[in-house]
């Protein structure tokens, strides 16, 4: 499940979320995910309220994404007791300076303390988001920070290449834009270090110790069905993809009037669906049948894919350039 991160109308909003969930009564969920900034904003008590209206009888994973500043012993305990099995920590970096240079709220706790608390709470699994390629992070600082992280590593790691998006503070400052070469290097580094420690790559930006994959995300990559609840949430059922209105106000008014909050819907045709399937598959170690590619030779000779008995799998270089490689999919 996904939430948008508007702070207003929390009460009403949560009411509506619950109501929207009620409409899904017939569904049994294999996994549940509270994502984005919303969980941190609404707080663990509201999350527990929401979990209480869900039928979790067949659910194997309940993840909650949290900002470091909202993690604490009490919060973690409460979440654990209400069925949360996995914490995803939006850390970005163990280094305060790097966090500050990205224009994010400074952390109030050290990573050492955060990881200690999470481990103490004994969730089934947990994960840390790292950002790769900040301009303020020198090669040396990166190595030091990575080592610091690896002293208390999470069993699942997401490593995202820093992208500059319109509307973020970073966007306005060209001097802080990431340098491609660095992005490339950081990704290689992270991949080789994690692989050396027994992590496997699950998807372009995700690595885990076997058994710690994020089941919820795996479902996205395998073109599975899911239903998103809340403003701006995305859903997919058998080739139909839709999303809710992104406006919290509209969301609340639609749901209060017992109407659907759906704003957009797309029914994929066969071609789009096939392309989507291959494109998503390509992001994973399973790879894509070689004949789904145009110019596979070129991609192989450029070191972007590795071919193994009729299946093309992205190389590390190919992963960094996956969108480009995807364009060669038929």
């Amino acid at each position: 499940m996904t939430f948008s991160n508007k702070t207003q109308h929390i009460d009403k909003y949560v009411e509506c979320l619950k109501r929207e969930i009620q409409t899904l009564k017939d569904h049994k969920f294999h996994s549940v995910y509270f994502g984005g900034g919303t969980p941190s904003f609404i707080g663990e008590e509201r999350i527990m309220e929401i979990l209480a209206v869900l039928d979790l009888s067949e659910t194997v994973e309940v993840s909650v994404e949290f900002h470091p500043n909202h993690i604490g012993n009490r919060v973690l305990k409460n979440l654990k007791s209400s069925g949360v099995s996995r914490i995803s920590l939006g850390l970005q970096s163990v280094d305060e300076l790097v966090v500050a240079s990205l224009g994010r709220t400074p952390h109030t706790k050290s990573y050492e303390k955060l990881s200690y608390e999470i481990k103490e709470a004994e969730f089934k699994s947990w994960s840390v988001d790292l950002i790769l390629g900040a301009r303020s992070e020198s090669d040396l600082a990166w190595r030091t920070n990575l080592e610091r992280f690896l002293e208390n590593p999470s069993p699942h790691v997401s490593g995202y290449l820093l992208t500059v998006e319109n509307g973020t503070p970073l966007y306005l400052d060209k001097d802080r834009y990431p340098i491609e070469e660095t992005l490339f290097k950081r990704y290689f580094d992270l991949d080789s270090v994690l692989t050396g420690l027994g992590y496997e790559w699950n998807e372009i930006s995700n690595w885990s110790i076997p058994g710690h994959q994020c089941i919820h995300n795996e479902n996205y990559w395998s073109q599975g069905n899911y239903i998103g609840v809340g403003a701006g949430a995305h859903s997919h059922l058998d080739g139909t993809r839709w999303s809710n209105t992104v406006s919290v106000e509209k969301y609340i008014s639609h749901i209060s009037e017992r109407k659907s909050a759906k704003a957009r819907e797309e029914v994929l045709d066969m071609n789009s669906r096939a392309f989507e399937k291959n494109w998503l598959l390509l992001r994973k170690p399973d790879g894509v049948p070689l004949d789904a590619f145009q110019k596979a030779d070129l991609l192989a000779s450029e070191g972007l894919i590795e071919v193994d008995s009729g299946t093309a799998i992205l190389t590390v270089k190919g992963r960094v350039l996956s969108s480009l490689v995807s364009q060669y999919l038929i």
Partner: peptide, 8 residues
């Protein structure tokens, strides 16, 4: 090209 514009 060294990286994708869009990753996640």
């Amino acid at each position: 090209r060294r990286k994708d514009v869009i990753a996640k």
